[in-house]
């Protein structure tokens, strides 16, 4: 059984308004991926993660708790939980994901940064000022909270002299490129996704990967942001034999992930349907969105799912890339599906 919709949505919107993220995690946890990269702080062009990949292990813990609590009498106290959460950050009491659970998701922004360096792109990073963009609260209709937050994000970008951001996931790309211009007066930040940047620049792939894979287009790239060709161009250049499922490109099929925060069982049902489609083309799937990756993987049942950045990093010869053949999937969160 799902927890009360209004209370859960309210907690997420409260967190964004009070703490700058729907799931506030410590800055050191959000920026850990950049430790070994020595990226300059700020600059006219920055890599903007929006924390989506870094938040996934925490989201998984919370969904596990939510599924458990939904079946107990505790569900009746969700409203009280919302009031308490206004006073104390409830996320701080969620058991921390293990280093192994975090490793793969932290690896994505690191691989993206290394790929951009290989392509000769110069950029900085905002560290603790790289804020969540507000996606989930926007999807829930909490427009007022998101508008306030968007102004906060843009103020930080301007403080660091940023003119252009390079994003790494579809949701942050959509928020910064298509939603913020409606919310912030005089918004003039150029927003490109790293797949668009790499496809435009061209990149050498000295260690081509000849795996047979199937492409899963995220709805937000394909239908909101028209990012369909760049990943295909890059995968072909990296040597992959990338097949199309029955529903692909602008006609792609949702992974179900957007329903997970409120209705995890519905999300799982949609994911299972998508996995059945994908499996008909290949047993290994390339994803490009953290939400798709985690939701499809849970429904995967023997299929392998990897983020596109790992395949590209492996073909570019970046050591320890996540697309390395034979690497095990990270363990699911305790109690997860």
């Amino acid at each position: 059984m799902a927890l009360p919709t209004r209370d859960v949505a309210g907690i997420l919107a409260d967190n964004l308004r009070l703490r700058g993220s729907v799931l506030p995690i410590p800055a050191r946890q959000a920026t850990r991926w950049a430790r070994e990269l020595d990226l300059p702080k700020g600059g006219s062009t920055v890599l903007y993660t929006g924390l989506m990949y870094q938040l996934i292990p925490c989201i998984e813990r919370l969904v596990t708790i939510e599924r458990w609590a939904g079946d107990t009498p505790l569900a009746r106290f969700t409203g009280l939980g919302r009031r308490l959460n206004r006073l104390v950050n409830g996320v701080a009491f969620v058991p921390r994901p293990s280093a192994r659970e975090r490793a793969e998701y932290d690896r994505v922004p690191a691989d993206v940064a290394r790929l951009l360096h290989r392509a000769g792109v110069e950029f900085g990073y905002l560290y603790e000022d790289d804020l969540y963009a507000g996606t989930l609260a926007w999807d829930l209709g909490a427009d007022e909270a998101v508008a306030i937050h968007a102004r906060r994000v843009v103020a930080r970008l301007r403080r660091h002299g940023v003119r252009e951001v390079i994003t790494i996931d579809p949701h942050t790309t959509n928020m910064l490129r298509s939603v913020y211009p409606k919310l912030v007066d005089g918004y003039d930040i150029r927003v490109r996704n790293y797949l668009e940047v790499l496809a435009e620049r061209g990149l050498d792939f000295p260690a081509p990967v000849h795996d047979r894979v199937v492409i899963h287009d995220p709805c937000v790239y394909a239908r909101y942001e028209n990012v369909v060709e760049p990943p295909r161009k890059l995968l072909a250049a990296a040597g992959l034999d990338a097949g199309e499922p029955a529903a692909s490109g602008r006609l792609t099929w949702c992974c179900g992930g957007p329903a997970e925060a409120l209705y995890p069982a519905r999300a799982a049902a949609v994911a299972a349907g998508r996995v059945a489609q994908l499996r008909e083309t290949a047993p290994e799937c390339v994803t490009m969105c953290p939400i798709c990756l985690v939701n499809l993987r849970k429904a995967g049942d023997g299929m392998r799912f990897r983020d596109i950045s790992g395949y590209l990093a492996r073909a570019a010869g970046i050591p320890g890339a996540t697309g390395t053949a034979g690497q095990a999937d990270p363990p699911p969160a305790p109690g997860g599906r």
Partner: peptide
């Protein structure tokens, strides 16, 4: 219809 409204995936398959 609150649950129906909030379970929509916003995937835009309908708009397509």
């Amino acid at each position: 219809e609150l649950e129906t409204v909030f379970s929509c995936l916003l995937c835009r398959a309908c708009e397509q």
